[in-house]
Design a protein around this nucleic acid. Structure first.
Lengths: 302, 302
DNA sequence: AGGTTTCAATACCTTTAGAGTATTCAAGAA
DNA sequence: TTCTTGAATACTCTAAAGGTATTGAAACCT
């Protein structure tokens, strides 16, 4: 069997005439006769009745014609899909998410990616930092979002946005009457801090900032993530320093105050990480979209 | 594009190694390398990443692999379906039916055919004799059932069964007390006769029989078909001569009596007709089944 | 009936592309 | 560094597809 034979067969069936079909195919009549014979031989089935007027398709031929057309449309589809996949417009992208980024930034990135690449299936995996690295190495995921990344030789990372810090306060607290709060004041309130796992982390970064400013805050609670931290604020257990994007989390009894007079390093990055050797066109288009998002975010900040 | 290339591609994808794939395909390594390159060239897509360990399929390759496998299963299916159609086991058969045969014999033939050829779609058309001939010539149908056929050069006919005649009588009539009725007695009762259209027909045949026996029956009604005739018997309008298979029609108030001492010609055939030049394997398998039915019916009669 | 026309089939030659052998190139592993 | 492994390249050979010329067979038309 051979696609050439199928193409010839379809043309002969459509023309009902070897000579005309040969003309349509830009070949001469004898080879076409031969090819049709070979096809019939191969199938063991008469596809045409030879009449003095030309070639009359048989019932078996009619059935085969239908199938032959299907085969061609599948071949076309295969080509097209391979090309789309090759240019990163078709396929499946496994993405790991974690931290407060999922509250605002990550959904916006994913949404904008999906509108440009509707045929890419995005599968989300919620996992911690350590798991992300391992999953990347094992190729279970292609890209992951996280906040504070330690440099690794086989994993590349790119900062997407650098967010300012906000202070989540309870609306019953006198603080909530202020428009903002000075960084230097932060050690005057019981502080809820997160997370305690995964090195390096947001907790470590924050404590360093205080240390450099010679401040010694009271840590009232340690929790696993921003959502839990803000929930405790709502319950009146203290205040909590969070990245801007956590402000998307509206809870009754919680207000977010800008932190004024903060040191230069009082920011937290949202990054994405991926295998350094990953050549996937899908990843490339995804990263392109992430960078576009990043540029827009920076411009809006200026 | 070429099925050979697709087959090679699938093997390389499965082996992940050009050398091993070449061995599996019973060719040497260089031509295989060339074919894969040509395929990539043609698609404009990298299907494999060349690693020091072998060939690692890309995402686009994975997509294309899926499609390539689909294509092969379709090719297989096309071959198989063409072969089944070529041996008359797949396709569509348009059959015309008419007359009292549809009450018993024809359904039994169709049932037995369908159990042997489940993939042949049978489409039934109810039409009169003249229409049947025209529909055959126009190829709208392939085979038709009827009773009395005039010979034609382009239409072949075969007698399936030759049925005895029965007399349908009303259960209130004194006749219904008898086990049977002599042919010679038939002109003593008001006779319902059918059909008046389509030459030659059952009515003509019956009247001839009476004529030869020098009998002159009273014709009380003329109707279009056996079912109507028997219905009139149920209503007490007279008696009606019908073929055996009409006895499958059970109506309250109607009894069927064998006709004794009938002349040799007092039988009616059920025939099937088809185009003399029709070479369709489907028709052949159908006729084979009809002949088998015919043989069994004759044997059961003896 | 005989010549003409119209298709498909056959005979025979040419060209192309797929397959083979030998060899080179590149990248890890010892 | 050398050795090994696997893909790529160079070149030759062969098989199969394509071309030209012709035959064969059936219908059509005087």
């Amino acid at each position: 069997m051979d696609l050439r034979k199928l193409r010839y067969f379809i043309t002969v069936a459509e023309e009902g005439h070897i000579g005309r079909a040969a003309t349509a195919l830009n070949i001469s009549q004898p080879p076409l006769t031969r090819q049709i014979h070979q096809l019939e031989e191969e199938l063991g089935v008469e596809l045409f009745n030879r009449t003095p007027k030309g070639m009359e398709i048989t019932e078996a031929g009619t059935i085969f014609l239908e199938e032959a057309r299907n085969i061609f449309s599948l071949v076309e589809q295969a080509t097209e899909r391979a090309q789309r996949a090759g240019s990163g417009r078709l396929g499946r992208l496994d993405v790991a998410i974690f931290g407060s980024g999922i509250l605002d930034t990550i959904p916006r990135i994913l949404l904008s990616f999906r509108s440009d690449y509707p045929d890419v299936k995005i599968v989300l995996h919620s996992m911690g930092k350590g798991d992300q690295i391992e999953a990347l190495r094992q190729r279970r995921i292609s890209v992951a979002f996280n906040r504070i990344i330690m440099p690794l030789p086989d994993i590349k990372s790119e900062v997407i946005i650098s967010e300012n810090l906000l202070l989540a306060v309870n609306t019953n607290s006198p603080l909530s009457q202020q428009q903002n709060v000075d960084f230097a004041e932060l050690d005057k309130h019981p502080l809820i801090i997160y997370p305690s796992r995964g090195q390096p982390n947001f907790k470590g970064k924050l404590l360093n900032l205080f240390h450099e400013a010679k401040m010694f805050p009271t840590i009232s609670h340690e929790v696993g993530d921003a959502v839990t931290g803000v929930s405790l604020v709502a319950g009146g257990f203290g205040v909590c320093v969070v990245p801007e994007s956590a402000a998307a989390l509206k809870l009754t009894g919680v207000k977010y105050l800008p932190i004024s007079k903060a040191p230069a390093g009082a920011k937290v990055d949202l990054s994405c990480i991926y295998r350094a050797d990953d050549q996937s066109p899908l990843l490339f288009s995804f990263l392109e979209k992430v960078r576009e998002f990043s540029r827009n975010a920076k411009r809006d900040n200026d």
